[in-house]
Design a protein around this nucleic acid. Structure first.
Lengths: 340, 340
DNA sequence: CACTATCTGAGGTACGTACCTCATGGCAAG
DNA sequence: CTTGCCATGAGGTACGTACCTCAGATAGTG
């Protein structure tokens, strides 16, 4: 079966106490003895029974999700999945907390991260752009023994923090490919609607989208991004004016995670010649829209997987284990009416 | 924190021994007392710490995957993911075994299922059509206390066995939708290539595919399914003759999980006017084909999720827990070059 | 009322690990 | 040789649950 500490002790010819000292890095063991124990670990391919260890420690993993203040349905979905996970993983001694931060305020995030108690919080999943302040705060967290992952947002090349989420450029490119293929070889304009182009995530999506369209679908021209700033009135106004200026809009790409307002306006303006509409994220609203063919395709990431993956990564880090990269890759999903 | 059996005992005003008797259904407790304990369970929302219970029991879950004999790359993928899971879940006291059965032989499957030792095997994930014999064998397994799930294959409405996998009809419909949308409003024939149409899975895929095409893409007509029987020579011959008889083949749908041979033939025959090609399952081969634009889209299911989901379901059944349906739904994935 | 049969409590051991204390051995410096 | 430190062993308790035994209590029977 599995080797236990007792087996180790026998194999190394030492006592349980010494095995314990070696395993837990306690002082007072000769290098010689340490080596003997390590050899035994190799030989028996011993690995600590983490479950029993946690029982003994009375340990409860407490992980924190740091999310922007709610509002859109995508975040609601996420919260629901976090709730589910909290329930499902309580058997695995994992407790989840959520804090919401007014989005985009790096100072607040950094301050909050700085104030976390390593005795209480074992790890944090952070959904926020990785600004220098935030990155610094993460480094200090790591020093204090709190694990972090960048969650959904904040993927940066060269960051040493694990990232759980999808590659936004690839997501944009996927949207671009679908837009290109769904447009039936007709020339036309493509409208891109975002909540804001301030964020790295939006920029990346747009970049990926443009790359594909420009390289492979020369009949389509992508218009400058419209920014709604989450304001319904503004949304209405700018979309209306775009349609007025460009009669031949054959495609609409809504790249923000809240598709509701833009979609409603677009639907109202185009009930005759419906353009191809591609949006992001699965929410009750977008789901309905997809089923009623108001949207042609959705680019999504499975929120349940996101949450569970973040938890697995955090737990692995806390336990000092490696993560299985292949298992933690979050897929960019394409949803049509048929595979909803 | 979490209520323990000790808390329960105090709350119910009984001893630990009685709590234990109630929890584990041991005899010798008055109904009255049983009720008191159950009330306490409700009140404290107690749930057994399964981890500690397994420690105490010295329990190691042993799950068996019953797969068709290997051969195609999809099964290789699956085996690789099972291996990974075996490693990753050994910390959770889960051990995985694999047995391969010459596919389609219900007698052998039934016999094998009948010979399983409930003392050694806790649950089985079965990838095989649910024939009457197999269904009977599963019922008997359940009686002997071995959990089962139908894995990837064998979804049946009204089966009381859990199913882990995707809905093949929806998968076919998804393929149909893509085929329709990718075909640029040009009339044409669609070739459907299967290894065999004997299996329920193939029939369902074809059915879903036809439903969408017939209802919404009247310009396309779907040809009768070609069956390769896994024979390269036959594959070459029947595809070649199809192309000879129907010059205007604009789409090819390969619905078997092994796409290699059909794709190679089709590619060879159509290097000038490439039809839209849609295939199933992600393998090293189909991945490469997608990247080099020999295939236009892949309909897949994430093998890692499949394996982990089956394990979670089996474990939940063994523990007598309910499964979180939302977490166990396997998505029908659409892969393009961009979201690979 | 005595006698059963049934229930219940008290207490123990075990699982594999963590963490603690205390005793004892050796060895080196004084 | 003594003092004192370092290395190690022995043994304990705990985590939350399972499973066991035995004694004692309570109920029901004749």
């Amino acid at each position: 079966m599995r080797a236990t500490t007792k087996d180790l002790a026998i194999a190394a010819g030492v006592s349980l106490a010494t095995v314990d000292r070696v395993l837990n890095g306690r002082p007072g063991v000769k290098q010689d003895t340490v080596d003997r124990v390590n050899e035994a670990i190799q030989k028996l391919s011993f690995s600590r029974n983490i479950v029993a260890a946690n029982l003994a420690r009375g340990k409860f993993y407490t992980f924190l999700f740091l999310l922007p203040v709610s509002g859109d349905q995508f975040l609601d979905e996420l919260l629901a999945r976090i709730d589910e996970a909290n329930l499902a993983y309580s058997a695995d001694m994992i407790r989840i907390e959520v804090m919401e931060i007014p989005d985009g305020d790096p100072h607040r995030i950094a301050r909050l991260l700085g104030s976390l108690d390593p005795g209480r919080i074992d790890g944090v999943a952070i959904m926020a752009p990785e600004t220098p302040q935030v990155r610094d705060a993460k480094t200090r967290l790591a020093e204090r023994g709190i694990a972090t992952v960048n969650f959904i947002s904040g993927q940066t090349t060269g960051s040493q923090t694990d990232f759980v989420g999808t590659d936004n450029r690839a997501a944009g490119a996927t949207a671009g490919r679908l837009m290109g293929r769904f447009s039936q070889q007709m020339p036309g304009f493509v409208l891109v609607i975002a909540e804001s182009m301030q964020s790295q995530d939006s920029l990346e999506r747009r970049l990926g989208f443009d790359t594909v369209i420009n390289a492979e679908y020369p009949l389509l021209s992508v218009l400058p991004s419209l920014e709604t700033y989450g304001d319904p009135e503004r949304t209405e106004r700018i979309i209306r004016s775009s349609f007025a200026n460009h009669p031949a809009i054959t495609g609409v790409y809504i790249l923000s995670s809240e598709a509701r307002a833009p979609l409603e306006v677009v639907t109202r303006l185009t009930d005759l010649a419906k353009p191809i509409i591609i949006a992001h994220e699965r929410t009750p609203f977008t789901e309905t829209a997809l089923l009623s063919v108001k949207i042609d395709a959705l680019i999504t990431q499975d929120t349940g997987h996101l949450v569970r993956s973040a938890l697995r990564v955090l737990r692995a880090r806390v336990d000092g284990r490696e993560v299985l990269a292949s298992q933690e890759k979050i897929r960019i999903e394409i949803l049509l009416k048929e595979n909803l």
